[in-house]
C-alpha cells in the first residue's frame, strides 16, 4: 500500500492536480457569475470549445500565445453576450437557449477548424505556454515545484479565485449581481438595472469560459482536437452546484475533481488497481446529483435562477 502511495503522491502528482484544476476553475467561476445573476448558461460546453479553437487558431497563425488568449477571451465574451441577448434581453428559456448555444458554438468550432486546417492525420500543434517559475517561491520543497513552477495562466487562476470572491462580496457590482439573482424585483425597486447587470454577468462568465478554453489548447494540450473539451463544461456546471455558488467552494470543488482525475490518470498509467477509470470520471456527477438533494432543502441556489425578468409583468 505504501508503495502505491509513494508512486502516486509525488511532486508531479500535485502539479498535475493544479494543472487539471486550472481550466475547471476558470469555467466554474464563469458559470458561477452567470448563475449568481440568475442565468444558467448551458452554452458553456460549446463556448469553451469555440474559444479553445479560436485561441488556438489565432496563436498558431500569429505566433503569439497571448494574442490567442485574448482572442479566446473575446470569443467567450461574445458568445456569453449571445446567450445574454437571448435569455436576458429577450427573456427566452435559459436551458433551451443554452443547448442551442452549445450546438451552435461546437458546430461552428468544428466547421471553422476543418476549414482553416483541413483534414490532417496528425492534428497541427503549437509550442504552448512554458512553465514560468516564480523566483524564491519555486524553491520551497514540494509546494514550490508543484504550485510555483507553473504556466502564467495557472497563477492567473490562483489569483482569480480571491478576486472573484472580492468582486462578488465586496463591490457594489457584486452586490447588484447577487441581488438580481436572488430578488430581481427588489433589485429593480432599489434602482439596479436587472437587465444590464445580468447581461454583464453573463458576458464576464463567457470571458472566463473562454479563458478555460484557451488553457486547454495553449497550455494543456497545445493542439485542438474535437474532444478537447470533452464534457469539462458539464463538469463546471456540476462544480458550481457542488461549490454552492461560492467562488472559494467552487474552486475547492475544482481541486477535488482534479485530484480524482489525476489519481485516475495515475492509476491507469501505472496499471494499479482494477477499478475502471470511468468510475472515477463519473464520481463528480454522481456526487453532485446526490448533493443537490441535500442542498435544495437549504435553498442556497440563487432564487431567481432560470427565471427571466420582465419589468412590466408582476
Amino acid at each position: 500500500m505504501s508503495a502505491v502511495f509513494e508512486q502516486i503522491f509525488q511532486v508531479g502528482f500535485l502539479a498535475a492536480i493544479i494543472r487539471i484544476a486550472t481550466p475547471l476553475a476558470f469555467a466554474t467561476l464563469g458559470e458561477m457569475f452567470s448563475e449568481r445573476a440568475g442565468v444558467l448558461n448551458l452554452g458553456i460546453e460549446g463556448i469553451m470549445l469555440l474559444a479553445a479553437m479560436a485561441g488556438f487558431t489565432a496563436a498558431s497563425l500569429s505566433g503569439s500565445l497571448w494574442l490567442g488568449v485574448l482572442v479566446a477571451v473575446l470569443v467567450g465574451a461574445a458568445m456569453g453576450a449571445l446567450h445574454g441577448l437571448f435569455t436576458v434581453v429577450l427573456g427566452l428559456s435559459q436551458h433551451v437557449c443554452g443547448i442551442g448555444v452549445t450546438l451552435f458554438c461546437s458546430g461552428l468550432a468544428y466547421f471553422l477548424y476543418r476549414l482553416i486546417f483541413g483534414q490532417q492525420s496528425v492534428p497541427p500543434s503549437i509550442k504552448g505556454f512554458q512553465p514560468a517559475p516564480i523566483p524564491l517561491l519555486s524553491e520551497i520543497p514540494i509546494l514550490g515545484p508543484a504550485v510555483f513552477n507553473q504556466f502564467t495562466l495557472v497563477y492567473l487562476a490562483i489569483i482569480a479565485v480571491p478576486f472573484a470572491a472580492f468582486v462578488l462580496y465586496r463591490t457594489p457590482w457584486g452586490l447588484s449581481v447577487r441581488m438580481v439573482g436572488e430578488n430581481p424585483r427588489a433589485a429593480d425597486s432599489a434602482g439596479v438595472s436587472v437587465i444590464a447587470t445580468r447581461f454583464q454577468a453573463v458576458i464576464l462568465g463567457g470571458a472566463l469560459m473562454g479563458l478555460a478554453g484557451a488553457f486547454l489548447t495553449m497550455a494543456q494540450f497545445n493542439a485542438f482536437t474535437f474532444g478537447v473539451v470533452s464534457g469539462r463544461g458539464w463538469v463546471a456546471i456540476a462544480l458550481v452546484v457542488f461549490g454552492r455558488w461560492d467562488p472559494w467552494r467552487s474552486a475547492g470543488a475544482a481541486l477535488l475533481f482534479a485530484f480524482v482525475d489525476a489519481l485516475q490518470l495515475r492509476m491507469q498509467a501505472s496499471g494499479l488497481g482494477h477499478i475502471p477509470y470511468e468510475a472515477f470520471l463519473m464520481l463528480p456527477f454522481i456526487f453532485t446529483i446526490v448533493a443537490m438533494a441535500f442542498i435544495s432543502r437549504n435553498a442556497v441556489a440563487p432564487s431567481a435562477l432560470l427565471k427571466p425578468f420582465r419589468r412590466e409583468e408582476r
Binding site: L40, L42, H95, G231, W234, V235, I237, A238, V241, P276, E278, A279, L281, M282, F285, I286, T288, I289, M292, A293, F294, S296, R297, A301, L305, L306
Partner: peptide, 23 residues
Amino acid sequence: QFKVDDVVSSLLLNSVIYYALMA
C-alpha cells in the same frame, strides 16, 4: 421528493450514463 432542479440533474446524468457505457 427533494425539489432538485431537473434541468441540471437530467443533464448531469448524461455524463454518468456515458461513462458507464464507456466502462
